[in-house]
Design a protein around this nucleic acid. Structure first.
Lengths: 228, 228
DNA sequence: GCAAAAGTGTTTGGGCTACACCCATGA
DNA sequence: TCATGGGTGTAGCCCAAACACTTTTGC
């Protein structure tokens, strides 16, 4: 190894994931109690391994907890305050992910002690994990305003009222249902199914699903996505 | 140190800066030829030191090259492909910054071999620095479309036509001057000065400066910032 | 038949776009 | 006086916001 490299200090590199889910009513974050820190809730995290990229590591860690693959995963921010971990200096790269709660629900408490918390009712968190969550919420709002990522939080089939409730929860407000559905449908990203939701309301709402082809393209383009 | 930490591999952590500048005509990036890599241009970068945060490190490195402080500096992305640096595994946190070219111009070539390159005419770059620049341009466009960060690239006093040229350069297009100035002025972020620019045009354009108070607040809020 | 949620239509105002003319000045 | 860039005004259009009524169905 060259001198220039030898003189430098190496640091531990961790990954932490802010995992968002939506249960039909409010926006939730998945927290765990890990290892030595029995008393404090924290984000799901782990260490970067020699053979993997940051993104691969984040996906691996997410898989360990949830058993899910093919999940929406986006790098949030690298946190590197010298004293963020009081034991040993660690740089943590935070990722945020959006998961469909229904897809796995059961798995999460098998190995880990994990629980969903409403974003408006979070417990004290380990290290700077609270900052990470705050930033992730901000980013989610920012991003969901222009990109149709909200679908990632719902099951394959969902109704427009469900989608509206999700947006209501994310922005902590109440959108106008008429303008909302007009706006959403005008994107042409949704395919109306023949099936109606049963049990929830008398009338029943039509199910929709995402047009995956169009969705892939739209993800990269600008869309102003918040109606009234 | 606890076992959990001991078993983990540490890595070198670097910082790289995409430094944008505007010379009145086109958008530029500042590149250097560093150390051993005499033959390849690269971004300005350095190693994370034990006592500093990521942001402090990025600011320090930027200061070393340009002598500037109080510069617009924003974390772009952490790059961690296992083989991005072929010699030793390194995680690099990239920052992008916007500097006022006029403020220092002279200093940059004293210690380092540095040069401004048009973003449309970049040389081959070291490692994954090309990806970093691409991402930074994308982010700059994305961000400048909604936040008034364009001012960071101009001197304290600037004219509306100068600002329009900057936006033209960033988006590689030509905005309509009437709509552009209406839009910019409607934000009320600019203070018109009594002074006119001399020498460039016959008539001379009025200088403006940023209303710092309002600007600080606006930075955090949504503004749709691109006219025709 | 009534309660509760789903679904749809209209009007209005503001902002964006497109476009054209006058102004100030140095040469 | 003329050439060059600076500065402003307007009409049309589209989109977003505000708002109310009808439909469906389980009880």
């Amino acid at each position: 190894m060259l001198d220039q490299y030898k003189q430098q200090h190496p640091y531990l590199v961790a990954l932490d994931s802010i995992i968002f889910g939506f249960d039909g009513e409010s926006l939730k974050v998945l927290l765990v109690k890990r290892g030595m820190e029995e008393r404090t809730w924290s984000l799901m995290g782990g260490w970067l391994q020699p053979v993997e990229s940051l993104e691969q590591a984040a996906a691996r860690i997410l898989f360990d907890l949830t058993g899910l693959t093919n999940v929406y995963l986006e790098q949030l921010h690298a946190f590197g305050d010298p004293h963020r971990d009081p034991i040993v200096r660690t740089v943590s790269v935070a990722y945020f992910s959006l998961v469909k709660v229904a897809d796995y629900e059961s798995k999460i408490t098998e190995t880990y002690q994990a629980r969903w918390f409403s974003i408006y009712n979070l417990p004290p968190l380990l290290f700077d994990h609270g900052d990470m969550v705050d930033l992730a919420i901000k980013r989610l709002r920012y991003k969901a305003a222009q990109h149709p990522i909200g679908f990632e939080l719902l099951p394959e089939k969902f109704t427009i009222p469900q989608l509206k409730k999700l947006y209501d929860a994310v922005y902590n407000t109440e959108f106008d249902k008429r303008n909302f559905s007009r706006k959403i449908l005008s994107t042409n990203l949704l395919i109306k199914l023949d099936e109606k939701q049963k049990g929830f309301s008398r009338k029943g709402a039509y199910y929709y699903q995402v047009d995956q082809t169009k969705y892939q393209q739209a993800t990269d383009s600008f869309l102003n996505f918040i109606p009234t």
